[in-house]
């Protein structure tokens, strides 16, 4: 079943291209967000560290850097959830359709 003819039929199936387009767009968008946030944070660390040293409120010891740093971890984890939700949900259904139509 895994011969070239099968793969050729997959390529001719418009749903395959829809799947690849949608999933790739999501993966690339999320990667850009995570890497952008992280490298943006690192650039602030290198060039404008005082921003992160600002106290959260008047007289508090906690600084802006603490919630920002924690947010990078928490948000990028939530994004893995978002990706899995779509890739394992709607996209997986689309994938199943492709496989079913091609292997029929």
């Amino acid at each position: 079943m895994s011969d070239s003819a099968t793969y050729e039929r997959v390529r001719q199936n418009p749903k395959f291209h829809e799947l690849v387009r949608k999933r790739t767009r999501l993966a690339v968008t999320l990667s850009v967000i995570v890497l952008g946030a992280y490298y943006g944070f690192m650039m602030i660390v290198a060039f404008a560290p005082d921003v992160l040293r600002t106290p959260l409120s008047q007289g508090s010891t906690l600084t802006v850097g603490v919630p920002v740093g924690a947010a990078i971890i928490v948000v990028s984890w939530l994004l893995t959830g978002l990706y899995s939700h779509f890739a394992n949900g709607a996209f997986e259904e689309l994938n199943k359709d492709v496989v079913r139509e091609v292997l029929e």
Binding site: S31, L79, T80
Partner: peptide, 15 residues
């Protein structure tokens, strides 16, 4: 900061 650096690879591995 180092701890965060150790983490960010994982979402990328998934995507």
């Amino acid at each position: 900061i180092y701890t965060i650096s150790f983490f960010v690879g994982w979402p990328i591995i998934l995507f």
